[in-house]
Amino acid sequence: MKNIRKELLVLILSIFLSVNATSQNKKSGVTDSDIKTEKKAKKKKKKNKKVKLPNIDLSHWSVTTPELNKKGGAMNIEPPEILNYATDERLIPYMYNDSTSGSLVFYSFPSVATTANTKYTRTELREQMVPGDNNTNWTFAQGANMKGKLAMDEVSKDAEGKYHRVIIMQIHGRLTNEQRDLIGQKDNNAPPILKIYWDKGKIRVKTKVLKDLSATGEALLHEDAWGDDDGFNFEQEVGFRKFTLEVKISEGKMVVILNNSEYKVYEDVHMRKWGVFENYFKAGNYFQSRDEGAYAKVKYYDLEVSH
């Protein structure tokens, strides 16, 4: 009787173990499949998340590149054509999206395609308050703000092993047609009141100063009335990291802000008398070298202008 019970117990235990093993195998098989499917879905989702676009509205910007146009000058593309930069063969080498970082890359190098009054080349945006029109600009009295989030991506070094400099933002002065004719100048160019450099990993600011503080009226309009200041270096080292730059303009005043923490304020006679000019913003990669093989790539993640 004991043997029968023992055999029965062994039989029941064997059946239980067999059923449980089958159940576990089935359960394990389903789980493995689910995990694989879930992993694929997560991988696909993660891959899709990597595709990012810069937060930049180009409808009020034109761009100049190191490419020659048909007239032998630097190529300039205005709105609405600039909006097709991702497919425009004229722009693709110099201005393109980095979809992994969500930035707009500006690439420049020394070429023969220079603009007036400079030996350097650029892939640089020029503000157009009215798309396609360079004749509508702003004054200090009207006020203006520009803010960008950017980073130096790549830049070459000179013979001494020092990084080449790049102008990453500007405010350029402009003569009205009436002012141009008054002083007998052939074009509307006026000096840049602001140049912001990426200089060996730091941010350097240059502005203009009036040579004769007593100058007024027509005398202020001539380029040779203005000289360069000594420049200002922000303390922070940005290197190749992402940083923010903001420029705030109001009557007689210009403020440059780095990373919302360091400020350089210009509020003096030079700023007050600069009010005679119209102005426009510039942003991008104005490369400051003619060295053979030199180049730079600047990334812009955000760029906003308001008036």
Results as ranks from 00 to 15, higher is better:
166 V>Y: 03
236 Q>L: 13
288 Q>I: 06
93 P>D: 10
265 V>N: 11
94 Y>R: 02
68 L>H: 10
14 S>C: 11
13 L>C: 06
114 T>K: 09
222 H>W: 06
36 K>N: 10
262 E>T: 13
99 S>Q: 04
3 N>L: 12
296 A>G: 15
128 Q>L: 10
6 K>I: 13
47 K>L: 14
97 N>Q: 05
102 G>S: 09
206 K>V: 02
61 W>D: 03
132 G>F: 06
220 L>E: 08
304 E>T: 13
69 N>L: 07
86 A>T: 15
263 Y>L: 05
210 L>T: 08
162 K>I: 04
172 H>R: 08
276 V>M: 01
27 K>G: 10
294 A>S: 14
250 S>D: 14
222 H>K: 13
257 I>A: 07
304 E>G: 03
164 H>E: 15
7 E>H: 02
306 S>D: 14
140 F>E: 11
44 K>S: 09
69 N>V: 12
24 Q>Y: 11
49 K>P: 05
85 Y>E: 07
51 V>M: 06
47 K>W: 03
119 K>W: 05
46 K>H: 09
42 K>W: 05
200 K>R: 15
160 E>A: 12
117 N>T: 09
77 I>C: 06
28 S>N: 12
113 A>M: 05
107 Y>A: 08
66 P>K: 01
4 I>F: 14
98 D>H: 00
82 I>H: 03
260 N>Q: 12
202 K>P: 05
150 L>W: 15
302 D>F: 01
78 E>H: 12
64 T>K: 08
303 L>E: 02
119 K>S: 14
173 G>M: 01
252 G>W: 00
212 D>A: 06
80 P>V: 04
84 N>M: 04
51 V>A: 09
189 N>E: 12
287 F>G: 09
45 K>M: 11
242 K>T: 15
236 Q>C: 06
289 S>P: 13
204 R>S: 13
194 L>Q: 02
116 A>L: 08
54 P>G: 04
74 A>C: 10
247 V>T: 12
